[in-house]
């Protein structure tokens, strides 16, 4: 801050030096030309021992004296130094301006600068805080991401384990079902075979019995019927109660 203030104070001084260094010669003559001419006239008057008319006459006759005055008094102003009154007025104005600047301007500028610096500092602090917050958020996000990855990995492992278990169970169940199906198929096949044999046997028996019945029926004439009845009567009579 002190460096910045020193630089701020040095700036007007440098401006003053530049003004003095590059000031124009326009202000070199002015009232000093009159006094110079007056001095030269006084010197001529003194040289003429107070004879003003002679002096005027010489000036009138010898115009070179006027030229000499002009050369002596009306010379080009200094390219560096202004006239004294300008220096006084300029210096006064500068001092007034400098005082005003020191008393009012500089504090205002310094306040503005301080406010600006404070704002920048605040912004920097806010930015730092934001960065810290962002870093915290990022850390939290990364932690959450890591947790999520861990959870996802755990879920995947659990899902894989469950899938393996389900697959194992399904395979076992399928094997059991297949065994049951094979067993049932074998049982049904055996039953169907037995049923087919039974049906075939019944069919053969029916055919044989039908044929036998037709043969018997054809052979059962009245004589045979009579013998059958007689045989039955003998059987009933010969059977013990």
């Amino acid at each position: 801050m002190s460096n910045r203030r020193n630089r701020l104070l040095a700036a007007p001084l440098l401006a003053l030096l530049a003004l003095l260094a590059f000031a124009g010669p326009a202000s070199a003559s002015g009232e000093s030309v009159g006094s110079c001419i007056a001095e030269k006239l006084e010197e001529l008057i003194e040289e003429s021992h107070g004879d003003l008319d002679e002096v005027l006459h010489e000036l009138h006759v010898d115009t070179s004296i006027g030229d000499h005055f002009e050369k002596k008094c009306i010379e080009a102003p200094s390219p560096i130094l202004p006239e004294t009154n300008e220096i006084v007025w300029g210096g006064s104005a500068f001092l007034i301006l400098f005082v005003l600047m020191v008393k009012k301007g500089f504090p205002a500028v310094r306040g503005a600068m301080d406010a600006r610096a404070e704002k920048i500092r605040s912004d920097l602090d806010a930015a730092e805080q934001a960065r810290v917050d962002a870093q915290s958020v990022q850390s939290d996000y990364e932690a959450r991401l890591a947790d999520a990855k861990t959870e996802a990995s755990r879920l995947i492992d659990e899902g894989r384990a469950d899938a393996d278990q389900v697959r194992t169970g399904l395979i076992a169940q399928a094997e059991v079902d297949a065994a049951g199906i094979r067993e049932r198929a074998a049982s049904e096949s055996a039953a169907a075979t037995a049923q087919a044999i039974s049906d075939l046997r019944a069919e053969v028996a029916g055919i044989a019995l039908g044929a036998a019945e037709r043969v018997v029926h054809a052979s059962l004439d009245a004589e045979v019927q009579g013998r059958l009845i007689d045989a039955y009567i003998d059987e009933v009579a010969g059977t013990d109660g």
Partner: peptide, 28 residues
């Protein structure tokens, strides 16, 4: 068919050809 079936109350004495054919059917 042939022979006789006698029913006396609840008692049955079956000497018919039909019974013998049925017995033959059962034996199959």
């Amino acid at each position: 068919l042939g022979g006789v079936v006698t029913e006396i109350g609840d008692d049955i004495i079956d000497g018919s050809v039909r019974r013998r054919l049925n017995q033959l059917r059962e034996s199959f």
